[in-house]
Design a binder for these strands. Sequence first.
DNA 1: CAGTATCCAAGTGGATACTG
DNA 2: CAGTATCCACTTGGATACTG
Lengths: 125, 125
Amino acid sequence: MENPVETEEAICKGRCGESLSSVEDAIYVIGGKWKLKIIIVLQELGSVRFNELQRTIGGISARVLSNELKDLELNGFVKRVVHSEQTPVVVEYISTDYSRTLKSVIMALSEWGRTHKNNIREDVF
Amino acid sequence: MENPVETEEAICKGRCGESLSSVEDAIYVIGGKWKLKIIIVLQELGSVRFNELQRTIGGISARVLSNELKDLELNGFVKRVVHSEQTPVVVEYISTDYSRTLKSVIMALSEWGRTHKNNIREDVF
DNA sequence: CAGTATCCAAGTGGATACTG
DNA sequence: CAGTATCCACTTGGATACTG
């Protein structure tokens, strides 16, 4: 620890390692092209059905959406509710309280994305 | 707009469309497994060389790191500085002011990731 | 050191058809 | 409607060797 020739790598692992590993954990769970978008739509609409969700998000295939939803459900962001009293069976996906803990992440990302888009329009094109 | 049978999809596209598309834009630029991690290390160390960066991040191959850095440079998050007066040539990567606009994104993500990790330890295992 | 080139295995994802 | 199964093209990424 007091090694005078401590490498920069070691210094970084000590100094920014926590941020690094926390961000890594976050990306592992909510990273990818679709997860946050699904969570946003579910939070906004409250309750959505499969095909409706697919159309709202746009560009996602049924297979991929299905896999993403399973993933999100496993991690507690989404609850799958089956109304088996109806035929054909109706399935609703609803956002959980836990998904609301992502509020600040979503706000930060959407604000940055909006600003970035404006920067690009003004500076580059 | 005043259509009484306006679909939920349309409602969502009006209500949360901006957040949705902004988050999409953000993910498009800084999404993926490595980009934010690279940016964090560069911000923390200020200036890093290629192999050093590879070792600090850990788990990333030279080819992938090289591609990510090109991408980040194109988008203005990283500056590549060549010291051609030395042999063998020394290359430094430094973070830009623009990468600092990601501060709130990184903070939100790292805080959420840290909390999430704690939740998992306590609740699931 | 700072990458690039090549080979190759594994994963991702679209399209389509199909099921209860 | 709410998915699943299959086929298949494309992409991603590791390992290794190589260059200036």
